[in-house]
């Protein structure tokens, strides 16, 4: 009966935590990417964008996550960048 209640309660068990943590760490492992590497990518992206826009560097967020591949072949790594724009520069318009 206890089992039934815990299932209904849907409490987050320690194995759920384990699974979640593992999935996250494996994304980085599989992509073979170090935090330094990600910082480098981040720096370069900022540099390029700053040529055209004024961005909010403080709240900028770049991370490696995963997404379902378009071919439906399961989960693939994806680089997600959230870059708040303050102002678009007038160059190149």
């Amino acid at each position: 009966m206890l089992e039934l209640f815990s299932r209904l309660g849907r409490r987050r068990t320690s194995k759920d935590v384990a699974k979640e943590r593992l999935k996250l760490v494996l994304i980085h492992d599989r992509a073979n990417v170090s935090p330094q590497f990600l910082e480098m990518v981040k720096g370069e992206i900022i540099k390029v964008i700053q040529n055209y826009m004024e961005i909010d560097e403080e709240s900028l967020d770049i991370q490696l996550t995963k997404t379902v591949s378009e071919e439906g072949e399961g989960v693939v790594p994806a680089l997600i960048a959230n870059i708040p724009i303050k102002n678009v520069k007038s160059v190149g318009k």
Partner: peptide, 17 residues
């Protein structure tokens, strides 16, 4: 596994594919 305190066979296969 039953108590949810150990990853199940399915959980591990799901991760390692």
């Amino acid at each position: 596994v039953k108590k949810g305190d150990m990853m199940s066979i399915e959980d591990i296969i799901d991760i390692l594919a």
